[in-house]
């Protein structure tokens, strides 16, 4: 299998404290990887390093063989890395449709965009994605009026409209009801295979629903990697993260 994203010996230090300490991580094309770990394990920092929101102190981050560690956020995004934030962020004053239009637009140059009045070219993709995230009949709703779950789905939709090669999802089910979480797991299972995803998540039933391979982080280091059964039976993981009762 071809590796899409490779982190080699990556460290991120704040003074003496290492948030990420010599981390190696390989994500293959088409896989759905779950990133687990207790609070402060470095999951979000790891995502920040991949998307360029923070700079690595050491090591390399490469996407399809090219080093992206020195690029700025928008350049990395243009290379095909999409990110969903932990706190859902959408354009609250714009309608659902306008939100997705901004995300779909391939033309990033301001002056060319001044000359662009054409009606939206991505109708087909728009229909597919609004179907998938279930917001089809809410195109003209101002997104600030959406419920929390719908806002989460809209942001997933934004990232998908970008058509990224790699999707990073930071706690996509945070704050969702059980039904909403279930619907989200269905969305993710649809994406599996055609997209490469890295998902940070705490909700174990959700992880069980979607995960192929799980990576467990602890204190900025990689602790274990494997399938859900392997992770559940790993004594080290039980010690640092799950306590002695196992996963519930």
């Amino acid at each position: 299998m071809m590796s899409l994203l490779e982190l080699r010996n990556v460290s991120k230090r704040y003074g003496d404290f290492a948030a990420i300490d010599g981390l190696d991580l390989t994500i293959n094309k088409g896989e759905l990887r779950c990133l687990l770990g207790p609070n402060g394990a470095g999951k979000s920092t790891c995502m920040d390093l991949i998307v360029g929101r923070q700079r690595v102190s050491e090591g390399t981050v490469s996407l399809m063989g090219t080093d992206i560690a020195a690029l700025s956020e928008h350049q990395i995004a243009r290379k095909g890395v999409g990110r969903k934030f932990q706190i859902p962020s959408v354009f609250k004053e714009l309608t659902v449709r306008q939100n997705l239009e901004v995300a779909f637009n391939r033309n990033k140059d301001p002056f060319l965009n001044m000359l662009s009045f054409k009606h939206f070219k991505g109708q087909k993709r728009y229909d597919e994605i609004t179907d998938l995230i279930g917001l089809k009949d809410r195109s003209n709703t101002v997104s600030g009026l959406l419920s929390h779950g719908e806002t989460q789905w809209l942001e997933i939709g934004l990232v998908l409209m970008q058509d990224p090669v790699l999707l990073l999802m930071d706690e996509p089910t945070a704050g969702m009801t059980e039904q909403e979480t279930y619907k989200t797991s269905q969305i993710f299972n649809t994406l599996k295979g055609s997209h490469t995803l890295v998902v940070v998540e705490h909700d174990m039933s959700f992880v069980r629903e979607i995960a192929d391979v799980i990576t467990v982080m602890h204190m900025g280091k990689l602790l274990a990697e494997g399938t859900i059964t392997e992770i559940e039976n790993n004594p080290q993981v039980r010690n640092v993260y799950l306590g002695t009762e196992g996963i519930h």
Binding site: V51, E73, H74, A77, R78, G82, R83, F85, S89, V90, F91, K92, E93, L94, Q98, N99, E101, V102, A103, N105, N107, K108, P110, F111, N113, M114, L115, S116, F117, E155, L158, Q162
Partner: peptide
Amino acid sequence: QSKFGLIVQAIRDDPERVRFLGYN
């Protein structure tokens, strides 16, 4: 009313989100 205007309004609502959609 152009795409530029739409993106400017998106930046007003959430600059970080726009940045991670690949806009400078």
